[in-house]
């Protein structure tokens, strides 16, 4: 019976933690996606906007990176990291076209990472 209680405890912990972690990660990725999305939607492209968006994405991503590493494939994290660095570079060079392409790429990377944790099929 002792084993049953331990397993029951582990099972409940996993299910609850899993649900919380799932919602949390989705929320974090949604915020990053939303930042990118608002930039893409915004027709007023300028240096200031690019820098603000990049800083916001970078801060949010690096703040949560360790948490994301627990649940998401490392390759996705590395790809997101690389894209953010390239976006930073494009913002520095005020290359709006490149920045837009990278923004869309980041948006799809976040969606892809999200589908890894939530897709049943």
């Amino acid at each position: 019976m002792k084993h049953l209680y331990i397993c029951l405890l582990l099972f409940i912990t996993i299910v609850i933690t899993g649900l919380i972690a799932d919602r949390y990660i989705k929320k974090e990725l949604n915020i990053i996606s939303a930042d990118v999305h608002s930039f893409i939607d915004n027709s007023d492209y300028n240096d200031k906007n690019m820098h603000i968006t990049t800083e916001a994405i970078k801060k949010r991503f690096y703040d949560k990176k360790n948490m994301l590493l627990l649940f998401i494939n490392k390759e996705h994290i590395q790809e997101i990291e690389k894209t953010i660095s390239l976006m930073e570079n494009a913002a520095y060079n005020t290359d709006i076209d490149e920045y837009q392409i990278l923004s869309i790429e980041l948006y799809y990377l976040c969606r892809h990472a999200k589908s890894d944790i939530s897709d049943f099929i």
Partner: peptide
């Protein structure tokens, strides 16, 4: 596959172990 988080194995193993114990009870 070192690129995968360890939790990808730990969580299913604990779940299977729990199901097995639940089944036996």
């Amino acid at each position: 596959a070192p690129e995968l988080p360890v939790l990808y194995s730990i969580v299913p193993i604990i779940l299977i172990m729990s199901y097995e114990v639940f089944t036996s009870v």
